[in-house]
Amino acid sequence: MNSNIQKNKASVIENLDAVRAMIKRHKRNDILFATIGLIAIMFGLLALLTLFVDLVMDGYPRFNIQFFSDFPSRRAGSAGLLSAWVGSLLVMLVTFLTAVPIGVAAGLYLEEYAPKNWFSDLIEINVSNLAGVPSIIYGLLALGLFVYGLNLGQSILTAGLTLGLLILPIVIVSTREAIRAIPIAIREAAYAVGATKWQVVKDHIVKYSQGGILTGVIIGMSRALGETAPIITIGALTFIAFLPPSPITTEVPFINFEWLSSSFTVLPIQMFNWLSRPDHAFHINAAATGAIIIVVTLLMNGTAIWLRYKIRKNIKW
């Protein structure tokens, strides 16, 4: 009897030690995994930091005013980005004017007007599918449709329309998300005082969702700024040592549209061009261009994310 209890006691203590060892082991596993996880995240973040530092260090000799005010040249040292950043600006203007009205209108239709049937399902499936189509496929579409089908040539208009189609899903999706966050009570209140559907949409839905829409537009535009593949595919020239005709003239009617059909180059194309040359001197230019592209896109995306954060915090329905 007594010895039995003794035995039990011993086994319990033994068990307790085993349990303690197990808990210790599992706690160690916890810490181990937490460390691995932290390293995994740091790996991703440090990779970007390394990339950025590498670009800035390689490209820093070129960070001066001449780099922005010179045309591309055969000599790396005197080559600049003038035609590229002007081209990027003009292409983005066309992209903005195509993608924003169409994208916002499509988002409004899908959320506020579309009946829930096969037709709206069809549109929805298409939008989500388009978001996953590789950008180079948009380039092929533009090559077949805009360049040769509609004879627009390898122009700023073609590039702008192509990138407009490319970022359309981004604008549509962000518009829809912003609209979906608006409570139904807002609409009901407007209807109750006799507003028509369009009045509700124009005066309330658009007003309340404009912050969210802006977020999507900025993210889309930053994507358009960095896209290279579709623009190369439409056959845009890479050596452009002239500027497109100015959109604003001194004579009446002060605006001309010749620039739309002008050939052009954009920042990422110029970077690709310099990068694919064997001469290392051009690689320095490529690095400097890359650093500029990263800074601009990060600033745009950062603004968008900050904006979204602010909207989420401020709006309490």
Binding site: I41, G44, L45, L48, T50, L51, D54, L55, D58, I219, S222, R223, L225, G226, E227, T228, A229, P268, M271, F272, L275, H283, A286, A287, G290, I293, I294, T297, L298, M300, N301, G302, I305, Y309
Partner: peptide, 24 residues
């Protein structure tokens, strides 16, 4: 803090990663 940075990373243009691959 990390989530928005991840979103930022998704937005880095791919041509820049091309430079990274070839020359780094």
């Amino acid at each position: 803090i990390v989530k928005p940075i991840l979103e930022l990373l998704v937005g880095v243009p791919t041509i820049v990663f091309g430079y990274f691959a070839l020359l780094f």
